[in-house]
């Protein structure tokens, strides 16, 4: 009988095989493509819609309060808040302005990736594949690393897709590509890179919650979105449009600390829990 060649179980080989499994799955997962497509299309749709609705008034019947919808002027508003250049140009905020772009900009990707990570991990347990997976690997480290890496890649791709979508949406809507208030292209690049590294923080949190919940996808999604919302507020602060190398360094350090720290805890949880 021809002997099947299997590589000896060193850490790097184990990690390599786990990554191959997860990549294979991710590239065959409809969810992955849907999420990236949403990340591309949502900014286009939002930008076009809000540009069309710019300046529209709506009146609250009960209080009489007038709300003016303020659409974007600059394409960069999908990425973050501009410096106070708008006020400098004399555009006084009317009472009750609604800056929708501040609410649903590129940072939505941090929430969107939660859905991917939670379902990607819970599927291992719900399908029962965890039996085949963990019977042949008693060490759990590579599982945590691989899942974190998949989530990170998905999150990074979402951020990039959103960026592309925002540029396309801005071009279609005729928004200005001007960099105001002392912003440079390097700031934008640093901002995106910082957000990508910050993604590692969020993904690590989603991974540990998903591993805790295992097959209960609803529990991990609710927990992840709830937990993510708490940090969500900080994203704009930590990665503003005017980001510099300092922001990048901070996000990278934070990402690595969270990935290693929470990853170690995830590993312990996996070792003690039932895989079936």
């Amino acid at each position: 009988m021809e002997k099947v060649e299997k590589n000896k179980k060193s850490f790097s080989n184990r990690l390599k095989s786990m990554l191959r499994v997860d990549f294979y799955r991710m590239l065959r997962s409809r969810l992955f493509y849907i999420i990236i497509a949403c990340a591309l299309l949502v900014p286009i749709i939002m930008t076009v819609m809000l540009t069309m609705m710019d300046g529209q008034e709506s009146v609250n019947q009960q209080t009489g309060e007038i709300t003016i919808l303020e659409g974007p002027d600059y394409v960069w508003e999908s990425i973050g808040s501009l410096p106070s250049d708008k006020q400098a140009d004399g555009e006084e905020a009317a009472m009750g302005n609604m800056d929708v772009m501040a609410l649903c900009n590129i940072n939505m990707a941090f929430m969107g990736v939660a859905v991917f990570v939670c379902l990607f991990i819970s599927d291992d347990f719900r399908s029962g594949y965890s039996k085949n997976l963990f019977t042949v690997r008693s060490k759990r480290t590579e599982y945590v690393i691989s899942k974190t890496l998949m989530g990170f890649i998905c999150g990074a791709l979402m951020l990039l897709a959103y960026f592309v979508g925002a540029m396309l949406g801005g071009a279609i809507s005729g928004l200005s590509f001007e960099l105001t208030g002392g912003l440079t292209l390097m700031n934008i690049v640093m901002c995106i890179i910082a957000k990508i590294f910050l993604m590692l923080v969020f993904v690590s949190i989603f991974v540990i919650i998903s591993i805790g919940a295992r097959s209960k996808a609803w529990l991990s999604i609710c927990g992840s979105l709830g937990g993510g919302m708490l940090l969500f507020m900080m994203v704009s602060m930590i990665t503003p449009l005017g980001s510099t190398i300092a922001n990048v360094g901070l996000c990278l350090a934070g990402g690595l600390i969270f990935a290693v720290g929470l990853g170690a805890i995830s590993r312990v949880v996996l070792r003690k829990a039932n895989m079936i």
């Binding site: 299997k6 000896k8 179980k9 184990r14 799955r25 065959r28 409809r30 599927d123 399908s127 029962g128 594949y129 965890s130 039996k131 085949n132 997976l133 019977t135 042949v136 690997r137 008693s138 060490k139 079936i276």
Partner: peptide, 20 residues
């Protein structure tokens, strides 16, 4: 690890992804 890599298992239902 070196013993476990040479195991095969079928416990309760088969562990397969339904949509693959």
């Amino acid at each position: 690890e070196n013993v476990r890599k040479d195991m095969g298992v079928l416990i309760e239902a088969p562990g397969c992804f339904p949509n693959l």
